[in-house]
Amino acid sequence: MAAALRSSPLAHALATLHPEWIEVAGMPLASKLRDDRPDRSAKLGICDLSALPRIGLKGPGAADWLSARGVPVPDQPNTWSALEGGGAVARLARTEFLVEDGFSGKAVARLAPDLKPGSPGVYPVPRQDCALALTGELVNELLVQTCNVDFTAQTRDARVVTLTLMVGVSVTVLQQRLAGTDCWRLWCDGTSGPYLWETLTGIAAELGGGAVGFASAFPDAQLQNLQ
């Protein structure tokens, strides 16, 4: 995989877990870890999805810019709407958006070339996130040990986006069904990624979970669509 152009903020941390890599949008994605156990994802799995394609934009014209390109824009701050192929358009506070493709989405590839400085009121936000998925029955236990927001009060259908602090790091959190797996999604600045990863996987390990590969967390995902 040395030829891959991009690398995840967690590349180094994952490398110590002896992963099998696949490449997604030019970035290696850990599909299996040497110690992956089938029950771990069901209990509490933490999976690196930094490789998923995404773009960000903000500004007073951002919503219109997305609408004009056929993207379903969530009309309320801090909500998200679904994209074809498992992706999401998250409205971050009022006028900022994060668009991320799911495993088989093509929206980002379509939008990215258009997103250049110059459109009035539309400001590109470079996204270099550490993007995670948390799976399993004990996710809430991990969340209550790391974040002072009551996530049990949120239903998946309400499509809430939460911008908050988790162990001191600014994060974006939402609940999603991705490739047939219910999960919590979490994004933070890539430079905080290794710390957040180390902290979350450490706590998860105490709870009987831990880092998992993509194939373990999302067994139903069509891997070939990714490449």
């Binding site: 009121g121 400001y123 936000v125 470079p126 600045d189 890539g190 430079t191």
Partner: peptide, 11 residues
Amino acid sequence: EVGIVNATGAF
């Protein structure tokens, strides 16, 4: 009429 983006971690 400006947009400020903190790109510290992105670059």
